[in-house]
């Protein structure tokens, strides 16, 4: 897929663990892992909003388009 999820980079920048983020945004660690690995087919706006709020970033910091 051409959309790359840079969640792990943002997590490293914020020095936050996946487990903590998953708990904060109210999704399971398994689902967060699917999102990080790029296996996810779609992301809800509510999830994206919660991630951006928790990591204090913009959607573009998490999602990237590559040709």
């Amino acid at each position: 897929m051409s959309i790359i999820v840079n969640l792990d980079i943002m997590l490293a920048k914020r020095k936050m663990k996946s487990k903590v983020l998953a708990k904060a945004i109210g999704i399971t660690e398994a689902n967060l892992s699917i999102l990080k690995s790029g296996k996810a087919k779609a992301i809800r706006f509510s999830t994206l909003e919660a991630i951006c709020k928790e990591l204090d970033c913009q959607p573009a910091d998490i999602l990237e388009y590559q040709n």
Binding site: L32, I34, A40, K41, R44
Partner: peptide, 8 residues
């Protein structure tokens, strides 16, 4: 179903 399951 797959798409729904993989929507986070």
């Amino acid at each position: 179903k797959e798409e729904n399951d993989l929507t986070i």
